[in-house]
Structures are given as C-alpha cells and as structure tokens.
Design a protein around this nucleic acid. Structure first.
Length: 574
RNA sequence: GGUCCGUUCGUCUAGGGGUUAGGACACGUCCCUUUCACGGAUGAAACACGGGUUCGAUUCCCGUACGGACUACCA
C-alpha cells in the first residue's frame, strides 16, 4: 500500500512539472530521492506485473513522443487520431511531440502528401515541437534524408552475428514459399530453419559472400532471429504480450536499394531522437516483439520506449478496418480535407474532406478523442486544453471502435450552436454574397439567432435562411391540398388588408392583427396558420412564423400573400 | 493455415465478485411550439457461449465461438 502511495505522489509531481527527481526500482525510498537504476532485462523480469512501477521508471526522462506517418496519400482519420493521442499525452506530461516522415519506400511516395499531413495537423491544432516543418536537434526528420545513418547500425548487427546478408532473388523467395506451402509447413517464412537452405552469408562460404558483395550483387540484410526465445513486451494498453521467437521471421532490415525498412529505421530513429513512448495503431502489435529484439541487439534496451498500441478504427457496419470505400459508401469523409489523388491506374480521384463538409476542427477533435478513449465522467464536450487535462493512456480501451458518423454530426451541432451569433453570421454573409443579396447587418444577425439551433453544419445556414430572402415561387402541394381552404384564403386576404393599414409591424402586432381578423371571421387560428405559413414561406417548417413576418417586413409580407392568393386561387379545397 | 489482440444496449462506452448494469448518439412516445427544429420527460435496448473457482460471476480462471490485426526488399 505504501508502495502505491509513493507512486501516486511521484506521478503527480511529474505531471505538474519535470521535477528532475530520480526514482529507483526498489525500496527503501528515502525522502523522495534516490539514484536512477537502469532497467535491465533482469529488472524487467522482477518488476513484471507491476506496470505502475515501470511507468515511474519511464518518467526519468522527459516525455518525447512522435507521430511518424508515411507520405503515401491523404492522412487517414485513424492517423489523425493517433497523432491526437500522441499530442495529448505529450502535453499532459509536459513533454515534446515530434513529427517524422517515414518515406523509406520510394515506390509509394506521393507528392503533396507531406504537405497534406502538415496542413491537417495544423488545421486541428496539433502542434509539433520538433519535426520536418519546424526542425530541431535531431534533424533531418525525413527518413529519406537520413539514409546514410542506417547502414552502420545494420553493419553493427552483421558484425555481431545478429544479422546477415541475403542474396536470394524474388523468384527464389516465392519458390521457397511455394515449397513450404506444398510441404504444409505451418508457418512458411524466412526464419531460423529455412535460412539454412537459402543463399545468404550464413550458408555461403565467406569467400563467395565477399565476392558477391564485391561484384555489386544485390543483397538485403536480414535480422538473425534467435531460434528459441520468449520475447515479451509490456504494452501500456494491453499489458504483457509474449511471443515466441520462432513466430518471428528474419525480417529484412536493409533493402537492396540501400534504404532501411520500417523496422530498422523506426528503431534507429526512435532511439536517436530519444523517444520515450511509442503510441501507434494496433496493426503494429504483431511486429512489436521484433522491435524489442532490435533494441536488445543494438544494445539500447535500457532506454527502449514504452509501447501503447491503440485499438483500430472499424467500419461503421459489418467488420474490418475502416477504409475509404466504407466512407464513400456511407457518404461521409475519411480525410481531414479534400484530396485529389490517383487510383492504381493513375486516374485522378477525389476524396471529400471533413473540413469542406462543414465539420469544425474542434468538433472533429472532440469526436476523435472519444473514439477509443473516455474520461470516465459524464462530460462529453472537451476543448483541447480540457482534453489535455483529462487524458491518460490508462483510459484508452482495448477493443476496436466502429466509426459512427452520427456522433460526429452531433458534436458538430454542439460546437456550432455554442458559437456566438456574431461569429455565426459570417457564414450567412458569405452565402448572401454568393447569391448577391443585399442585407443589413442587423437583419442578418436576427436571422442567424433565429436559425442557429437548426444547424448541424455551417452550410445548412443558407437552406434555413433562404425563406427570409427569397420569395416562394412554389408551394408544398401536399400541404396546399389539405390546408389551403377557401376559409383560410378569405381570412388571409382580410389579414392582408388589415396589414396595409398598419404603420408598425412586429411579431407582436402581426399576431394581434391576425387574432382580430380570425375573430371577426369566426375562424379558428389553427385553421389559418398552416395556410399562412405556406403563403409566406412556401413550406411547412421553419422558425416561428410571427418572427419571420417581423424580419421580412410589411411590404414583403403583403407581396407574398398576394402572390400566394393568385397562385393558389384555383387550388382551393372546401 | 499460423501468431497475436479483442468481445457490456444498434453504435460509443461507464462499471466491476452481491448494482433496478449507468450515460451519450441513433430510434419510439409524450410535453413545449397552433409547424419543423431546439429543449424537457419517458420508453425499448446489452454483460457472446460453456465449464471452473465462489455462498454468490457480467466481473476472476480455462476452453469454445465470433470478430479483428499481422503473416512483403509496404508502412
């Protein structure tokens, strides 16, 4: 129990500021100070089961996290969420957020993708402390520009017999896989067994290897994964995950084009950039043990970052990872803003974005934060600052999350409505300008406050406001046929006459006048109101009719009534 | 197929050995509004299954089922 209290006090100190205090793995714990004990394999073993303590040890260093996308196209919404969680964690812990571009696959590089990523993060208010756009002590932050750095680490592994050269051609590799499949080998892969039958520096005589290298024969460098070893990783979200090394294949570390693969580049860069926490998608969990092995072989296990593998974003219905296809089918965006891409055949494609669809960045952010995380309280609306305050990796869920656009819309509506009228009116002014309609600032503001509760997107504004600015030319037939009675027409006609004699017309006087007319004619108000709404707006829904009348004014009202009387005279039902 | 991960209302989730299993979105009904929307109230709606441990399991353990990810010289 004492143990836990100690942990709590330490973690509070650390979240408040970088206290500079060190923490050791074992009691006695004297007056809040002791020297840092490096985490060795042995100490990890002895600590196993006590994640809290490991967390404490991890806090020795300033928290540094990174978002490391590949510039292969528009930034997927799942990637945005990963970036968000990294950012929230960094800010919460008073640490740094880095942006690294993982462009080691030249074949999949897409021009403009990096700019897209940058603009997306910028739009959402996810600020980078170090990275391609802002620079920093570990520049460059683009892996293609770091190319010369990786080979030495691969060579270090080769020299220490942790990795080896492989000269197999793609054809030889497929043949090997076919052979293994035919032989019904349960786990066909390039591994500790099969490597003995392939063309590599483990099977070939040393002279021949040297000759091949000297001749410039293409080769890759593969990791020499141990045959029998239990590799374990303590994931911050999933706890201990153990994988037997026989399930891991001899992954390619350096490709024949001289570029590192993700696995090598990632570990080298995370180490060099002093990353303390790797927060990434669950699709990386299967290769996490491989990464642990790499840290160990490179001699970096003591400063290995902590891992947190995020649950995946799933299709709204059915099963599987959320894809662009699902978004298209569901009629919602999946990218932050519009993207002009190309399909496999090189034909131009268009993908709609949340921004253009009218989603507010703060609403999208709030929605995304709740996809897999929750604060454990009833509060749902969070500003970025509040998210930072409330965020913790412990409260991230384990299971995949279906993407429900309804909830995103709800968040948008909440944020839109919370905006002051003065700000919202800008959307209306824009629409008015587009339709070349002159309107006083006062009227625009009145209209805005009247319709703001009816909006989900700023683009709804014009649809809701049209009736204030454009006279109806068509009338909802379904309602006309039932509500536009001769009786109603008579009353409305009389109402028009009464109106023309009035000097002042506001919601109250308009209503009083209508009451007077209906009483004179002996007709109930309910018989007239629907018809009057049709005459004034052409439809059946909208804000309070008397408020509408006040805004459009007497002259416009009379014109509209006259138009309706003329247009609908032949439609009178009895 | 193999490895790993997961499973509470339709969806996002809270909770956790004894609860009327809570909230939000969506949906239904009612109220407000002589309309619609907003708002308010209310309803329907969930612990995947089978064993075990236990006085008691949705909660812990083991299986099964189902779902997902991974299984490239992609990341």
């Amino acid at each position: 129990m004492i143990f836990f209290k100690i942990f709590v006090s330490i973690s509070l100190k650390h979240s408040a500021e970088a206290s500079g205090e060190s923490v050791c793995a074992s009691p006695p714990f004297s007056n809040g100070f002791c020297t840092f004990t490096p985490i060795t394999r042995l100490s990890i073993e002895s600590i196993k089961g006590n994640e809290q303590l490991l967390d404490t040890l991890g806090m020795e260093r300033e928290v540094r996290v990174r978002f490391a996308p590949s510039p292969t196209g528009a930034l997927h919404i799942g990637g945005v969420r990963t970036a968000l969680y990294n950012y929230l964690f960094a800010r919460k812990m008073g640490g740094k957020m880095l942006l690294r571009i993982e462009d080691t696959d030249q074949g999949r590089f897409v021009p403009g993708a990096e700019e897209y990523i940058l603009e997306s993060l910028n739009w959402l208010g996810i600020h980078i402390d170090e990275g391609v756009n802002v620079g920093g002590p570990h520049a460059p932050y683009r892996q293609s520009e770091r190319k010369p750095m990786y080979m030495q680490y691969a060579m270090q592994l080769v020299e220490q017999d942790k990795a080896y050269y492989a000269f197999d051609t793609p054809e030889e590799l497929t043949e090997m896989r076919k052979r293994l499949e035919a032989a019904k080998v349960p786990n066909p892969q390039y591994n500790s067994i099969t490597r003995t039958q392939m063309r590599n520096s483990l099977t070939l005589p040393e002279d021949e290897v040297k000759a091949l290298l000297a001749a410039g024969e293409p080769y890759v460098i593969r990791l020499k994964v141990p045959r029998k070893e239990e590799v374990r990783i303590n994931d911050m979200i999933r706890g201990w995950v153990m994988v037997h090394s026989s399930a891991i294949d001899d992954k390619v570390l350096m490709k024949s084009d001289g570029m590192p693969t993700y696995h090598l580049a990632n570990i080298v860069d995370d180490h060099l950039m002093e990353i303390t926490h790797v927060i990434r998608g669950e699709e990386w969990l299967p290769s996490a043990p491989l990464h642990v092995l790499l840290y160990r072989f490179l001699g970096w296990e003591e400063t290995m970052p902590r891992f947190a593998h995020l649950p995946l974003l799933l299709k709204p219905d059915g099963n599987g990872k959320l894809s662009k296809r699902d978004a298209d089918a569901g009629g919602f965006p999946i990218f932050p803003f519009n993207w002009q891409g190309k399909d496999e055949k090189g034909n131009p494609t268009f993908s709609p974005g949340f921004r253009e669809a009218g989603y507010l960045p703060e609403a999208l952010l709030n929605f995304l934060a709740f996809l897999g995380w929750n604060p454990g309280t009833a509060q749902e609306l969070f500003s970025m600052d509040e998210l930072i305050q409330a965020f913790s990796i412990e409260r991230i869920g384990k299971s995949g999350t279906k993407f429900d656009i309804h909830k995103a819309k709800w968040f948008n509506q909440q944020y839109l409505r919370a905006k002051p009228d003065m700000e919202l009116v800008q959307y209306l002014n824009k629409a008015l300008a587009q339709h070349t309609i002159d309107c006083s600032a006062e009227k625009a503001l009145k209209v805005t406050s009247l319709i703001k509760d009816r909006l989900t997107f700023p683009t709804d504004m014009w649809a809701e406001a049209t009736l204030f600015f454009i006279r109806p030319t068509e009338y909802d037939q379904a309602v006309v046929s039932t509500k536009w009675t001769g009786e109603a027409a008579t009353v409305i006609s009389a109402y028009k006459d009464a109106l023309s004699e009035m000097a002042m017309l506001d919601a109250e006087t308009a209503k009083a006048a209508l009451h007077t007319v209906t009483e004179q004619k002996g007709v109930k108000l309910g018989k007239v109101m629907p018809a009057l709404r049709i005459a004034v707006t052409g439809g059946t829904s909208g804000p309070d009719l008397m408020q509408i009348i006040e805004i459009i004014g007497k002259d416009e009202l009379i014109s509209r009534i006259e138009n309706a009387l003329n247009a609908l005279s032949s439609n009178v039902t009895s």
